[in-house]
Design a protein around this nucleic acid. Structure first.
Lengths: 193, 193
DNA sequence: TCTAATTCTTGCACGACGTGCAAATTTGCT
DNA sequence: AGCAAATTTGCACGTCGTGCAAGAATTAGA
């Protein structure tokens, strides 16, 4: 009851994370198709029905961390100094994200590895990103008043980051991920108004 | 014996198209969730089991046309004159696509409208595009030898086209789609080697 | 503290889905 | 014609997502 978290919300957050973790762990061990929703629920100590109260499917559970990552990114972008150019803010926020949330994040890496093996996850992730494109666009509009351009920036930005991660996963650590992504972001230019 | 299409392949192509059309028509009429796979199979005159021999789910069936569209685009890109700049080739091929396949394509518009109402379709479409990014990259590599850049171009290009279509759907025909997309493509630049 | 209201969990039941399998049908070729 | 290969179909099975109502936990108010 200290912060803003009432006990109720706290427990909800706990089970949610518990489910996401269980999903990730089991999917890593048996492959995504070798795990049922019931397995995940059991591992987390809740019922199959409760799982569905939190996630729409195992893919959603596995990618839960990824979503909060992008939400954090949106927050970082909107926290950049006012007046900063839109694309610059995106680049800087991305760098900050990697500083705040250092790359050798065990869970995140596990997600990425799964992402490569299971294309169905890739699809779901892309779908999530399309949804988050709206939030990102809303934040960018404050820096780039032409909504058409803001939208375009959000889309190309997310596509670039995705590409960077994909390249990095294939390259197997020849270079630091933040460096690679930043280089790609430097290559892309979206002409403003 | 007769044409290049043996009777067998011909019939397969017919049922596939029949299924895709039925899926589209029924989804337009009752909404995607108001249609079962069995409904679609009945409409096409085949069994539920046969549907699964062609598509992994109703979403796949609905988006079938969209996929062939992008495949056609890939073909157009690789048919551009050799030596043409990669991004230029993409722009030109896109313009050709709209000329070859004129925009007021009834079925395609139906797909787009469904796409807006059902985010699950958006997710699946994005997933398809991620898969097709590989083909597009392979074609681009001939024009842009740095694979990293080719990959980045494929990703940003597809993201840009998607954004254009989304903007066009919301704007409700204030401007021609080909013009809008081409303008967006003109705004984006991916710095080559 | 006790109680009532609110919120969350659980089990049940149901329709829908995807798939392996084997039988039946269709097509290709001689 | 007749045989081989490919395709369709029905059946069965495990899994999935969800509405619903009952039960348990948490909150808020006296």
């Amino acid at each position: 009851m200290e912060t803003l978290t009432t006990l109720r919300e706290h427990k909800k957050a706990v089970t949610r994370r518990s489910l996401a973790r269980a999903a990730l762990r089991l999917a890593m061990e048996h492959g995504l198709d070798g795990v049922t929703v019931e397995d995940i629920a059991d591992e987390a100590g809740v019922s199959r029905r409760t799982f569905s109260n939190y996630f729409a499917g195992k893919e959603d559970a596995v990618l839960d961390g990824d979503r909060s990552r992008i939400q954090a990114l949106v927050a970082l972008v909107s926290a950049r100094p006012a007046g900063e150019e839109a694309w610059t803010a995106l680049r800087a926020a991305t760098a900050e994200l990697y500083r705040t949330w250092p790359v050798p994040d065990v869970e995140w890496m596990a997600q990425l590895r799964l992402l490569r093996r299971h294309p169905s996850l890739l699809a779901r992730q892309a779908g999530d990103q399309v949804a988050l494109e709206r939030d990102l666009t809303a934040v960018l509009v404050l820096r780039e008043p032409d909504e058409e351009v803001a939208r375009l920036m959000a889309a190309t930005f997310l596509a670039t980051v995705r590409t960077g991660i994909a390249l990095w996963l294939e390259g197997a650590g020849e270079q630091q991920l933040p460096v690679l992504v930043d280089r790609l972001l430097g290559r892309v230019r979206v002409q403003g108004t």
